[in-house]
Write a protein that binds this DNA or RNA. Structure first.
Lengths: 328, 328
DNA sequence: GCCGTGGTTGTAAACGTTATCAGTCTGTCA
DNA sequence: TGACAGACTGATAACGTTTACAACCACGGC
């Protein structure tokens, strides 16, 4: 390993000058700095991150904690977060908690001294645990909110996308819409249903039903596919794209066609929505941008700058899974 | 921040005893150790990772470099790698290179002093660059092989799965199979086509055709969907599941039905294969296990244990996208 | 009664970096 | 000419941990 001493010896200066040439170039005379930089290049010197962190308390890393990296929603989020933290010179430690609050808690504890801050995406922790974590380490929450601004929050604003979806359905002629809800304890689930109910109420002629809870994956969708049909709605909005695909798959087996027999809308607009046949109309946001916003918010927090709560608007992407209802 | 000094003061011992109580418990008398551990618990002491790495040259972190974390193939790989490294007390730094060799090279350089080892998955680097990286930092390659065992390699053994696929198709009555190939420079592409051609040659009556190259996503599949039909094969095997789904989507628009008009098989058996309608027959391996194998191989390397090259066997998962060819 | 041995603990150095403080040198002004 | 300011650089301490070495103690054998 090549250290600051090697560079100093090579350039014929002290180690202090080497450090200064790199960190505060203005405080070193040009000729000296050039010599140092030349030595750095020749020897391939890279400052040791551990030593730097030890000295000034910053690790240069941040952590992103997600429930399931295989879920395309979190994969996209991660992608955006990764690119952004790299652009700011931070490395990103990704932790997959396998949807377990216990694993999440342990991992957060272990991460504390390794990173400068935490991004907790759709945390499974209780409000109490979350408050403790937020108090101990600088952190940013995604899709959760803590009373009293103990941690900045980055959320998706579901309302605009949901309103657009209902308007879209109404324009096609639908009046009775069924929502297939996600996991019971999910904060997002609550917000989606609320947004949908409110939008339906605002738009006089629409009726919103709800079925669920359901696990937030394709299996969850399959499980309620028949029950959903029985409720006599002409359009179905699913908790997320995966649930929608589960419905689609099971319906296809049952001979129910989308969008001819029933219209279907997903949530999140992940890339799998495009892959389905028919491609899925979906309410979603720019998830990479969402991840980016979270990182920026965390970096601001680390630098003790205050930043307002960020909310990314959702929008409707119309594809092939919605059409006018079948005439009765 | 609570340090070893605080714990020592609380327990009434020296800092050396604190460190020993944690690292070499046998070398400290029971009663003392209990006092130390009690103090650790009371104060919530966590050893500072930076200081530890600085002292004994190990960071306790490893890095996984993938071309695209949104690709379900790499997401599953990452999930397995994450769980395994956690189980061994390592944290995992995930880097998404956005398929760019340049980004990959830069990131690897930056990571060098931050981690104890690298896992390069489907690296986009040239053989020359790869050799340089392998020489500089302990690393493990996934889906690449370097002449002269400069770095251990973890690969997928495509042959068994491909043979099973051809036997499956033959049993159904297919004789003329088309392979839709992936990106030109891809090592995996080469291996898949070779395995397929060899298996077809071994099985006298089968003809294997090839079309491509194609970008390894749904768009790539869509792009060659019509060309693929023109070649008059009764079954198509796609470079990966995403390409297969692209074919499926385009064919569906064209009124071509799967599996009635043409049988379709994907590669990788990612979760999207189950989501398709019809669900996709696919050749794949346990990707989480694959990620796990890579981590284990790297950890062995870090401990200077030698480990043989690992190869994970692929298998065929039959779902609804394959059926007997339509009688002429 | 003395010495050696083995078990337990303490002292201090080292890891590589940054930052504080002091030192050197040049040039300028009284 | 002497002093002083300012610009630049060097020596050194500190970050929190681990570990080599030394110190201490009790005990048993001669």
């Amino acid at each position: 390993m090549v250290t600051v001493h090697d560079v100093a010896a090579r350039a014929g200066v002290s180690i202090a000058t080497v450090s200064r040439s790199l960190r505060e170039p203005d405080r070193v005379i040009d000729e000296t700095r050039d010599r140092v930089l030349a030595a750095v290049a020749e020897l391939g010197y890279r400052p040791n991150r551990a030593a730097r962190s030890l000295r000034h308390g910053r690790t240069g890393a941040i952590a992103l904690v997600v429930p399931d990296i295989e879920n395309p929603y979190f994969a996209s989020l991660t992608k955006g977060a990764q690119a952004t933290s790299r652009a700011h010179g931070y490395s990103l430690v990704v932790v997959d908690t396998t949807e377990s609050a216990e694993v999440e808690d342990e991992e957060i504890g272990a991460l504390r001294s390794q990173v400068d801050g935490l991004i907790l995406a759709s945390s499974r922790l209780t409000e109490h645990e979350l408050a403790r974590v937020a108090a101990e380490t600088t952190s940013v929450l995604i899709n959760r909110r803590l009373p009293g601004a103990q941690a900045p929050t980055v959320t998706l604003d579901e309302a605009p996308g949901v309103r657009a979806a209902l308007e879209h359905l109404r324009a096609l002629g639908h009046r009775r819409v069924l929502y297939v809800g996600g996991p019971d304890a999910s904060w997002t689930e609550e917000r989606r249903w609320t947004a949908l109910r409110d939008a339906a109420a605002a738009d006089g002629g629409m009726t919103a039903l709800r079925v669920g809870p359901v696990s937030p994956d394709a299996a969850g969708g399959r499980a309620v596919a028949e029950e959903a049909l029985a409720l006599d709605a002409t359009a179905v909005i699913a908790y997320n794209d995966l649930v929608a695909l589960g419905l689609l798959a099971r319906w296809s087996e049952l001979g129910v066609r989308v969008p001819e027999d029933v219209s279907l809308i997903g949530f999140d607009n992940t890339f799998v929505a495009q892959l389905a046949s028919p491609p899925l109309t979906s309410v979603g946001a720019d998830l990479r941008g969402f991840g980016e916003a979270a990182v920026l918010s965390l970096l601001a927090r680390i630098d003790r700058r205050d930043i307002p709560a960020v909310s990314t608007a959702t929008a409707l992407t119309v594809r092939g899974s919605t059409a006018p209802p079948r005439p009765r």
